[in-house]
Design a protein around this nucleic acid. Structure first.
Lengths: 107, 107
DNA sequence: TTATAATATCGTAATATTGCAATATAACAA
DNA sequence: TTGTTATATTGCAATATTACGATATTATAA
């Protein structure tokens, strides 16, 4: 136990869950919000922006990257991280569908 | 350590993170998807639907409820759980805003 | 009242996550 | 080369999450 049980759930459900999970941390939401405002997104800026140590931020960036929510391209000594709109759209589509399919007679 | 650091992040960031976190589990996504299709949403149905034991499902329902993503109203021996569209919309709005604010020159 | 059915809570073992200091790596500058 | 700057990795202690059996609770049925 302690492990999340993924067998018995559809691929789609597991994929959505892991994307939401990747966004389920304030540091990672803050990173995403920051990326949105930046032309060039360098990790040093984040170290100055977030109340966390550099290794911790690096770890959060890695999780977002593993989930496919951000993409990073090396650019000399620094790295340009950007949002991957495909994944964002997948989550957005799921949430939007919930709004429209809602049974109005329930609760 | 081990605790998520929430000081130093805005209220909004913390709230979004905790909503995403609540959705970051396959069982909880499956619950949400199931609720969407049901007129009456009773936990017993979920027990037959999900590959998890009843106490585990009850626990996941509680987490969704604590996050405000679902609402439950007692109805005799059973409970009618429903989606709270307000929270769903908050997440949806956040994701939608990411799509539109994206800097096209980045990456 | 007693039984039954639906759901919640408790306790606990297994595992995962978080945060950071220390250290490594990699690219560029002097 | 040596230094410097930006980022990643490692190792680890503290805490959180997950799953479930056992048990409690609560509402109705008999």
């Amino acid at each position: 136990m302690g492990t999340t049980k993924s067998e018995g759930f559809s691929e789609e459900v597991n994929e959505l869950a892991s994307l939401f999970k990747a966004m389920g941390h304030p540091a990672r939401i803050a990173i995403i919000q920051f990326l949105r405002t930046q032309e060039k997104c360098i990790c040093t800026d984040l170290v100055n922006e977030l109340p966390l140590a550099q290794p911790t931020i690096s770890q959060h960036l890695k999780e977002l990257k593993n989930a496919g929510i951000i993409q990073g391209s090396v650019s000399g000594t620094s790295i340009c991280y950007c949002l991957n709109l495909e994944k964002i759209s997948a989550l957005d589509a799921f949430l939007a569908s919930l709004k429209y399919d809602q049974n109005p007679t329930c609760c």
